[in-house]
Computed example of a mutant assay.
Amino acid sequence: MSPSRRRPRPILALVAANLRRQARDRTGLFFMLVMPFVTIAFVGLALGGGSDGGTRLPVGVVAGNDDPVAAAVLEELAASPNLDVERRDTEEEVRAGVREGRLAVGLLIPPGSTELELVMTQTNGTGMAARGAVDVAVGRVSAVLEATRAAEAAGATPEEAAASVRAAREDLAGVEARAPDDAGQGTDPRGFAYTAPANLVLFTFINSMAVAAALVETRRLGMVRRSLAAPVRPSTVLAGEALSRLVVAVGQALLIIVVSALMFDVSWGDPLGVAVVVGAFCLVATGAAMLVGSLVRSPSQAPAIGPPVGIVLGMLGGCLWPREVAGETLTTVGYLFPHAWAMDGLLTLARPGQGAGEVLVETAVLLGMAAVLLVVSLVVFRRRAMTMR
């Protein structure tokens, strides 16, 4: 048998040995098999539940019964598929409902006024989603009011102005409007459809960093140095160690995709696009794990450093909450790291009609980051493995 055919066997042996050692870590298995889905469930419910944005968001409204502007706004709000309008008697009821989380947002419509007040919390992802839908509804009414003013300014009689308004509303009814991208979560998935991709990115990276401790133990015991002294090519040993971490990352990602689709009815979008983005991010996580495992000196240091770093990057990348909540500065900083690019790619694919062609930029950035991390980590790992006692 030729050497080229025998070469994969040492790689597979290293992968199998590393996976067996990982399977004996009960704490690690808990964070891989249980914790992601607990987080998806609780955070997903906090962000509105549902998997495709179908959950109607409660909006509390205080408005006069005989006010024409209020009647028009209420009609548009009731027609929105994303909102559940709840009338309230007082402003205090609305503010308390928003503050306590029973209402996504509140809308105060003073009688005889076109000055509307939106009540919302600045750290509520569900509120950001409801705000986008409310903006659309109010925008429709504003367009009708402008049509009325224009007709009257042009000298139309009240009857002619009313006819113009009816025509404007009929034309507007056929227009599918949506909130702009900077209006919050109006164009992004929410509920489970948001938390499933977020936790895939978060836990794939964190658990990859955590298993770097096994790599440190391998170096400490001199196993890699002895393998390099055997009649096995150094590239084979390095490939085996890297492939072990990649298998863990891919396994974690696939588990979250499959279970979230079955348990929470999450639709991930175009399979090819998801595979490309997730595969690129798993390579990033592998490179990060190899680098941490190469730099730290004891097995206890890897889990002490890796997960906190992963959580911080997850915050910046929108894995713990929508990035809009963090503000423009932190959102911009987040794009220095892979989590933000992976989240952008997965959330884009979750929207209807989006495919792999729409995430080429995100994929290219992730692959570039992965290449840098893998090259640097493999060089550092080989030098440390050969010199460490």
Rank of each mutant, 00 (worst) to 15 (best):
R6D: 05
R7C: 04
R9G: 09
R9I: 12
R9E: 10
P10R: 03
L12T: 04
L12D: 02
V15Y: 03
A16S: 08
A16G: 10
A17P: 00
L19V: 06
L19W: 04
R20I: 00
Q22D: 14
A23E: 09
D25A: 05
G28L: 04
G28W: 09
L29H: 09
L29F: 09
F31I: 07
F31Y: 14
L33P: 06
V34C: 14
M35L: 15
M35A: 15
M35V: 14
F37C: 11
F37M: 13
I40K: 07
I40Y: 09
I40H: 13
I40P: 04
G44F: 09
L45D: 14
G48A: 08
G49T: 06
G50C: 13
S51D: 10
S51L: 06
S51A: 15
G53A: 06
G54S: 15
G54P: 09
T55V: 14
T55L: 10
V61D: 06
A63M: 08
G64Q: 01
G64D: 01
N65S: 14
N65G: 14
N65W: 01
D66L: 10
D66A: 14
D67G: 05
P68D: 03
P68G: 06
V69G: 05
A70Q: 03
A70W: 04
A70L: 11
A72G: 08
A72L: 06
L74A: 12
E75V: 10
E76L: 00
L77K: 00
A79T: 03
A79S: 02
N82W: 02
D84T: 07
E86G: 11
E86F: 01
E86P: 05
R88F: 05
R88H: 11
R88S: 12
D89W: 01
D89Q: 12
D89I: 02
T90K: 01
E91M: 09
E93D: 12
V94R: 01
R95C: 00
R95I: 01
R95P: 00
A96M: 10
R99C: 03
L103D: 04
V105K: 12
L108G: 13
I109A: 07
P111W: 00
G112C: 05
G112P: 03
T114C: 00
E115I: 12
E115R: 13
E117R: 12
E117N: 09
E117D: 14
E117A: 15
V119L: 13
Q122T: 14
T123Y: 11
N124A: 14
G125K: 08
G125T: 07
T126P: 03
M128D: 09
A129I: 08
A130L: 06
A130Q: 12
A130S: 10
G132L: 02
A133Q: 12
V134W: 08
D135G: 13
V136M: 08
A137S: 01
A137I: 10
A137V: 03
V138M: 03
V138N: 07
V138W: 00
V138F: 07
G139K: 11
G139F: 07
R140F: 05
S142C: 02
A143R: 12
A143G: 15
